[in-house]
Write a protein that binds this DNA or RNA. Structure first.
Lengths: 340, 340
DNA sequence: TTGAAAGCGCTAACAT
DNA sequence: ATGTTAGCGCTTTCAA
């Protein structure tokens, strides 16, 4: 059994309260003489004492821990590097803000179970990477648990969020393709419940319309978040007329597409141009390299953590927003539209 | 403030103990009549009560949480997918074994600080992805904190570990190259403090010797875990005589090598064959695709979590070992040795 | 400047 | 079968 504050107090010949004061350095509030303070520190060192976090949290009502909650565990199966970069950003920012991370992620969302865990006192707040209308968000807000969304807009205006301007990103990707002469452009979209995916689609459609091109609904496919592409996607790519370019909502999807398209005998970019999203490192290592819209992934994560930490600390910052501006990184997977 | 067990007890007209018994379903130990039990559940539902995890852990001496501790945060910068697959395995296994994960990872190791955090009562045990002789391991063992290593052997025989047979993996990679006629083979190794890296190197050297080839120390480079390769690596690759093949200790390094080699005008595999390690999904998407030794990454993680959970639950399983057998996945980056 | 003592919310031994 | 109560280890008022 670890040493307790009582043993320290006894050894230093003071009360547990005095030890607590010294350890927490309650400036101003109470005064402990230098002499007593030294005696206490001596006892602490000698006993190798360090406080029990559980007891401290229970008594002090603060855990210095935030939960990181993903939509589903298989987000870790996206191998493009997005998840890793996000984790790196979150981990680093958590350290900077002196909070620990409780990872509570399931294969499939289970709103009630998750809300219970997050409301059982173990965390001061939650960092959510979830659908923007996820009921979990409201559940947490109702329970008064500070919550921040990352890589997503927030529907509830009181919930802070940190994300990329995804609509602008969608516009950039599409504008690039149009400027290369493409007119028949396909979009591989993410879940209808992801604000990032929806916004990128919006950007895609609005640029097309601005150029007088009506988006073809048969060429807008919502693709599964892992595994192979839909059969009808491949059919559309090989049909007649067929798209000469594809904007995929993520690098992951873009790379899966490139692999399958190549398998179907399409040359990239001669027959088909491809643009991805996130511009993760892997884009530099594929063949051809992948043109992609970049967002500063670690920054978005870090800002999310910062907002959450501040909200917990100061109990303010409701409805704060952070938005990063995307950039287009042109690489080898995009080229002029083929002449007919 | 959330409802407490006392309010539930009052509402049900029973003691807090009765509520605790019913909630924890202490079979056998104590008997609560069905009628009382029903009354208690009714009160629980009506009040929307759920127990405070902190108080429960403090009183019950069990947190149902384990720490996941990496060597450094930038392991998340390895974009090859190893980290993601590992995280997926860990997260899924943690859910299966009903433990939560506390992520406590810093930019750089800080043994004492980390030991403190892990010993402050918040976790029941620790899952470590660390150097195999890391002092943190002993520190934790000394404090009686159940600890398990993943992706690493363990020096301390009492510490369970889950890993791949890395020496065999190194042998497989090298044997493949030798069988293709390569004699001048380079190895890009990982940290000398990683048992995985050291074992792969061992396998590399032993196969060479078995074929009567003395490993050339000038062609064994320890490469940094991120960023570009060493200048002397590129010099060696372009020297005369130069290696005709490279075995890189990780896919990450292999891919960095391929990029730089191509930049230096070397064709792969005509001029240079390359083998990586882990056979992550990205190996299928590079140009050429990357021959690599595969280990079942999620399985290693899952077994690590299982061992740890069992050790915590039953207080046995000291020194358990799990080893997965690697497999060679031949892809496009390896070919016959060039004739001189 | 310091100490006593009442919680924080729960579990579990002991009484009844 | 159920209630009483003493902790778990710490923080924090209140009194001295």
């Amino acid at each position: 059994m670890a040493t307790t504050i009582r043993e320290v107090a006894k050894r230093a010949g003071v009360s547990t309260a005095a030890v607590s004061y010294v350890l927490n350095d309650r400036k101003g509030a109470v005064k402990i003489s230098d002499e007593t303070r030294a005696r206490i520190w001596k006892a602490v060192k000698e006993l190798g004492y360090h406080p029990n976090a559980l007891a401290r949290s229970l008594a002090g009502k603060r855990t210095h821990t935030v939960a990181l909650v993903m939509q589903y565990a298989s987000i870790f199966s996206s191998w493009s590097g997005f998840t890793s970069e996000m984790m790196h950003g979150v981990v680093r920012a958590a350290f900077d803000h002196d909070v620990d991370l409780l990872l509570h992620t399931r294969e499939r969302p289970d709103t009630n179970a998750e809300a219970l865990v997050l409301a059982d006192g173990r965390v001061d707040g939650a960092l959510l990477l979830r659908d923007w209308e996820d009921p979990l968000i409201d559940l947490l807000v109702d329970q008064g648990i500070p919550t921040t969304l990352i890589y997503s807009r927030s529907r509830n205006p009181s919930v802070p969020s940190s994300c990329c301007d995804d609509e602008l990103g969608g516009r950039m990707a599409t504008e690039h393709l149009v400027s290369l002469g493409h007119r028949r452009i396909m979009h591989l979209a993410g879940s209808r419940r992801s604000s990032a995916a929806v916004d990128r689609l919006k950007g895609f459609e609005s640029i097309l319309r601005e150029h007088g091109i009506e988006p073809n609904p048969d060429w807008i496919h919502v693709v599964p978040h892992s595994g192979v592409l839909l059969d009808r996607t491949m059919e559309a790519l090989c049909g007649d007329p067929r798209p000469t370019a594809v904007f995929a909502w993520s690098d992951d999807v873009a790379l899966r597409l490139m692999a399958e398209a190549r398998g179907a005998g399409l040359r990239i970019p001669e027959d088909l141009s491809v643009v991805g999203f996130d511009s993760t490192e892997v884009c530099n290592h594929t063949s051809p390299t992948l043109t992609s819209v970049s967002q500063n992934i670690p920054l978005v994560a870090a800002e999310g953590v910062r907002m959450l930490a501040e909200r917990i600390r100061d109990n303010k910052g409701e409805g704060a927003r952070f938005t990063v501006t995307p950039e287009l990184h042109v690489r080898g997977s995009t080229g002029p539209a083929p002449r007919r």
